[in-house]
Structures are given as C-alpha cells and as structure tokens.
Design a protein around this nucleic acid. Structure first.
Length: 130
DNA sequence: GATGAGCGA
C-alpha cells in the first residue's frame, strides 16, 4: 500500500513544476575593446563609423564589412576602442541610436581565434641531423 | 539596395 502511494506521489511531483528556464536574459558577450555594430545603412562607410563612435572614445579601428566582389556593405561592421571603458561608453552611446536613417546596434564582438597567420602549418616538424 | 537581424579576407 505504502509503495503504491509513494509511486503515485512521484508521478505528480514531476509534473507539478515546469522545467525552469536556464537563463532569462544573458549578456550579449563578454567585455572587450572590440565592438560589433549591426543594422548599418548600406551607405554607411568605415569613416562614418569611426566618426560617430569617436565621440565616445578613441577609435583605434573601424570597418564596415563589405562584400569582396560587389563592394556593397553587408550592413554591419566593427569598431575597436583603445580601452574597455571607451568601448562601454561607445555601446551605451550608440546602441539603439540612429545612423544614416537606421537604428544601429552596438555590442561586444565575439572573440576570433585566428588573425593573419603567416605560417599556419608546416608540412613536417624540423628535425636535427646528427 | 527593396529596411536586412547579421560577427570581419
């Protein structure tokens, strides 16, 4: 009798609570001096990006990503500040603001492992002759 | 290039 009751209770206990959401809202990315800017107008240029983001800090690097063959902007770009503080100010100052008639979004860019490896792989490791 | 939701040559 007791075994039947405990099994009965277990059945209801699992359905009484719905599975809790793992995270209500997570930050876009970890702080970095590198910013990802999206929602750009097709006619916004790298200079325009640098100009508007320079109001919040020293922009070390600014680029609108364009298609190699067509030359048209892909509608997003990257901005790198000298310090994390400036990057935070740049996000607070430009995220959700208008640029060339478009609402743009500024957030921390995702870290990128490779950059420009001059010698990515050699065919075989060097060996010493004797 | 038409208001596209996107992480770079």
């Amino acid at each position: 009798m007791a075994a039947v009751r405990s099994g009965f209770r277990r059945l209801f206990s699992i359905s009484a609570f719905s599975p809790p959401p793992p995270a209500a809202v997570a930050p876009p990315a970890e702080p970095s001096t590198n910013l990802f800017v999206s929602g750009l107008s097709k006619r916004t240029t790298s200079e325009g990006l640098r100009e508007v983001f320079s109001k919040f800090g020293q922009v070390v690097y600014a680029r609108v990503v364009t298609d190699r063959v067509s030359g048209y902007s892909k509608g997003f770009g990257f901005v790198r500040y000298a310090t994390l503080e400036e990057a935070a100010e740049g996000i607070k100052g430009m995220d959700g603001k208008f640029l060339d008639g478009w609402v743009i979004f500024a957030e921390y860019a995702r870290p990128r492992p490779p950059q420009s490896p001059p010698a990515p792989q050699t065919s075989e490791p060097p060996s010493f002759n004797q």
